[in-house]
């Protein structure tokens, strides 16, 4: 029957389902490892994981490493975004530039950045810089391409109208091009934040002495599945928190858009 479309979604019900499924999964995991259906050496155990994370929080161990990772992510993300917007803007503005560099951009973007990480570490050392470069290399392209499309897709009537209303080049940028590109840039920001964190963690994982990537890599080398999984859980929580923040920010900047049904 096609009547389900008319019935409003009950969010309480959906939340209950979500919580129930999560609880069932954790319970199954716990029971399976306690009864030795699965070896906890490989998959750890929810209660052990919880103790581990609580321990990390109590000793402050995790905050030190999380802070390092966040620092690399945020610095790299900001620089990558600024660069991406600036270059995207220039390319959209000077078409010749775009034509000349188009193959280069496509080629660079096609390169798997994860494989470049060891080179970055070789060039920029084990510290912050190599991770920031890694993050920039991931974030830049996402932001660049969406800024470029955003500005090129600006409504021609709107640009013409602004010109007829007396807008100079600066007015056009400030009142027409940037606001309409902002929609595209924001749509890409949530993707690029995920990329930024991946960049930082992969960089740490391959060579560093601090940060979440290092924590995970160290636990792995000790065959400590609990350490690896706990590290991943902490990262997951961080990404969710950032994503929620960005959603709020996006809503603030999109006040003028009709609410999607």
């Amino acid at each position: 029957m096609a009547t389900s479309a008319a019935r409003p979604v009950s969010w309480t019900e959906i939340r209950l389902w979500r919580a129930g499924l999560l609880a069932a999964f954790l319970l199954l995991w716990e029971v399976a490892t306690r009864r030795a259906w699965v070896d906890p050496f490989f998959v750890s155990q929810p209660t052990v994981l919880a103790t581990q994370i609580a321990d990390w929080i109590r000793t402050g161990f995790i905050f030190r490493h999380l802070l390092v990772t966040m620092q690399e992510t945020i610095i790299g993300f900001l620089l990558g975004t600024v660069l991406g917007v600036a270059v995207g803007f220039c390319f959209a503005h000077w078409e010749k530039l775009a034509h000349i560099f188009d193959p280069l951009m496509v080629a660079l973007n096609a390169m798997p950045r994860v494989v470049l990480a060891p080179l970055f570490i070789l060039w920029f050392g084990l510290g912050l810089l190599s991770k920031v470069v890694m993050v920039i290399s991931l974030v830049f392209f996402v932001v660049f391409f969406s800024t470029y499309t955003g500005i090129r897709e600006v409504d021609r009537d709107l640009v013409n109208n602004a010109r007829l209303l007396g807008a100079g080049p600066r007015h056009l940028i400030r009142h027409v091009l940037l606001p309409s590109a902002l929609t595209w840039i924001f749509a890409s920001l949530r993707t690029s934040v995920g990329f930024a964190l991946i960049g930082a963690v992969v960089g740490e994982y391959l060579g560093s002495h601090e940060g979440m990537g290092y924590v995970i890599s160290y636990a792995e080398s000790m065959f400590n599945a609990t350490g690896v999984l706990a590290g991943l859980l902490v990262l997951m929580a961080a990404v969710i928190a950032i994503d929620l923040g960005l959603k709020r920010l996006d809503a603030r900047f999109s006040y003028w858009k009709p609410v999607a049904k």
Binding site: D157, N161, G166, A167, G168, P179
Partner: peptide
Amino acid sequence: FVFQRDALFPWKTVAQNVGLPLLF
């Protein structure tokens, strides 16, 4: 020039739209 499709600036309010040519 009044366009066929309304070429208002969606991120600006009514007052900001009307005032835009004066700002420009």
